[in-house]
Design a protein around this nucleic acid. Structure first.
Length: 521
RNA sequence: CGGGGUGUAGCGCAGCCCGGUUAGCGCGCCUGCUUUGGGAGCAGGAGGUCGCGAGUUCGAAUCUCGCCACCCCGACCA
């Protein structure tokens, strides 16, 4: 409802829950006002503290939506740049399709309707008016002929369009991508991981053959996996979803799954082989070389700002955010240290020179010469923000030709010569990037367990979580039973795993292979 | 939608039981001085429709009723 005479704003949405001071007394020292809740104490609060502390996002006046702050958006821009280059390198072009979709479009593909109907924002009117009491209300006169749905994804409007664009095999393939926002009306939301509106990219391709479409689906999955591992430093399992976890309207859903530090899985990207489902729903046919009419084969694939959530949950620690250098908006920050004005002048002059050298060498560097903040305060701020390297330079360093480099990931400090610094920094950034991946991989391996007994599975799942490789008989019933009893789901059937006949420990039925189980976000 | 809780300064809270001047405290913010190699100290200052609306009362943050919002737990999910 709209409150007359003022903006509709009543207190904050998503009030930060009170710290559990009864269970965990938090000694809030005056100097530690923004302390991050330890990860081991309360993982959810730790996550929220990092998002707030690193200024990645803020809450919105609308429940379930978020404001992405400059630090968070810069991260997203770096992700976009890397992914976009990979999409272009594989022949894709960007385009833009509208936010609003005629409601009737959603109804065309049966599985699609079922999957999305319950979470659509619907536009029914086109204007507001003031009523007798001066309150702003929707004008009943402006009711739309047909409701518009705010896109939860764009398959329908895209396939309506493709059906107009495609007549001949010569029109294929169509390889498009779009960077946009979508809305899914979620019950429970969490910053970055699940919000009602989110930013993502959605690729939509049209192909003449089934084989070509499957090849595309797999190619894009591999791009996502490469991006996750090489850029985000997050090891992922490539796999195929079971029927129950499949995208609404897909014949096959491929995914990459990552393991978070609390032992829960996160789906980090999906690539769908849509078969001819949307082509049939939107009557999209082409004439092949033999002059026959055929339905077009489709794929779609996407990753979202949820990746930022993954980044946080895989690498960060109790000091705050930890970012992989390749995606960090600022890769190195220089903090000058000085007492007197004279010292300040000399130190900052040297720091400027160093910053220029680093910048020339392609390092994203920031010189933090703000006045009114003490070095220790700056150290902390950049640490919470996840800047991979911190360079501290004081009067002694200026004299000695040295500089102190502190690594964010392992918090080690070393003093190095200013000579050849650009090379030193670049090498260290590479080292950090690799170290983050290695650490995440070691964690995942230590938390991936082969289990052959349902009891052992349940016990380990409760005790420490992680990925479980367990035999599955392939039935939806067994899958549903495990979900019901343990809240764990089959994250995927890993690709490229050797067939390994065995027995499903849940049902006792024979199984062809192990699948990956976990509790998931 | 069911169960539990909370609304007091930008943030975190006290005050409410037992009504009584100008509603406090910490952090943050502003100004000045001293500081500056790991979250500084002192002094001064700004900042409030006590969620909203009725009622009781000489008097309501405090008592009563109604409403609203949000949080947590459950059913859906990139």
């Amino acid at each position: 409802m709209i409150v007359p005479g003022g903006p509709h704003r009543r207190g904050r949405v998503y009030r930060r829950p009170a710290r559990r001071s009864v269970l965990f007394p938090v000694h809030r020292l005056s100097t530690m006002a923004d302390a991050i809740t330890p990860r081991a104490q309360d993982y959810s609060q730790w996550y929220l503290d990092i998002v707030q502390g690193a200024r990645l996002a803020d809450y919105s006046p609308v429940r379930g939506c978020m404001i992405i702050r400059p630090n968070g958006y810069a991260l997203w821009e770096n992700m976009q740049a890397a992914l976009d280059a990979m999409f272009k390198a594989t022949g894709h072009r960007n385009a833009y399709f509208p936010l609003f979709i005629p409601q009737s479009f959603l109804a065309r593909e049966a599985a699609h309707v079922e999957g999305f109907a319950k979470e659509c924002a619907v536009v029914t009117h086109s204007r507001l008016k003031l009523d007798e009491d001066g309150a702003l209300v929707t004008d009943p006169e402006s009711k739309l002929e047909e409701n518009l749905v705010v896109r939860p994804t764009s398959e329908t409007i895209i396939w309506d369009t493709y059906s107009k664009w495609i007549q001949s095999w010569r029109d294929l393939p169509i390889l498009l991508n779009q960077w946009n926002n979508v809305v899914r009306w979620e019950m429970r939301t969490r910053l970055f991981l699940r919000t009602m509106e989110f930013l993502w990219q959605e690729g939509h391709t049209a192909h003449a053959t089934r084989g070509e479409a499957i090849e595309e689906t797999e190619r894009m999955l591999e791009i996502y996996a490469t991006f996750a591992e090489d850029w985000m430093a997050i090891p992922v399992v490539r796999g195929i979803k079971t029927a129950s976890e499949r995208f609404a309207g897909a014949d096959e859903t491929y995914c990459i799954e990552a393991l978070m530090q609390d032992g829960k899985a996160l789906q980090a990207g999906t690539s769908h082989f849509l078969g001819q489902n949307f082509a049939k729903a939107f009557n999209c046919q082409f004439q092949n070389r033999d002059n026959e009419l055929e339905y077009v084969w489709a794929t779609s694939w996407g990753v979202s700002t949820r990746l930022i959530g993954a980044l946080i949950m895989v690498h960060s620690d109790d000091q705050g955010l930890v970012l992989p250098p390749k995606l960090a908006p600022t890769q190195a920050v220089i903090v000058p240290i000085h007492r007197t004005d004279e010292e300040r002048e000399r130190v900052v002059a040297r720091a400027r020179g160093i910053a220029a050298d680093l910048r020339a060498a392609g390092v994203r560097v920031e010189l933090d010469d703000r006045e009114g903040f003490r070095p220790g305060w700056k150290f902390n701020e950049h640490e919470v923000a996840g800047v991979p390297l911190r360079l501290a330079i004081g009067p002694r360093d200026v004299e000695n030709g040295t500089i102190e480099i502190a690594r964010r990931d392992d918090r080690s400090k070393t003093s190095v010569p200013q000579d050849g610094l650009a090379q030193t920094v670049r090498t260290m950034l590479d080292t950090v990037q690799q170290a983050l991946f290695d650490r995440a991989l070691a964690f995942r391996e230590a938390n991936t367990t082969d289990v052959d007994s349902y009891d052992e599975f349940k016990e380990l799942l409760d005790r420490r979580g992680g990925f479980f490789r367990m035999h599955w008989d392939g039935s939806a019933e067994t899958e549903a039973r495990v979900k019901e009893e343990t809240k764990a789901t089959i994250r995927c059937i890993p690709l490229g795993a050797a067939e390994e006949p065995g027995v499903d420990p849940v049902s006792g039925a024979p199984s062809k292979r192990r699948v990956l189980y976990a509790r998931a976000y």
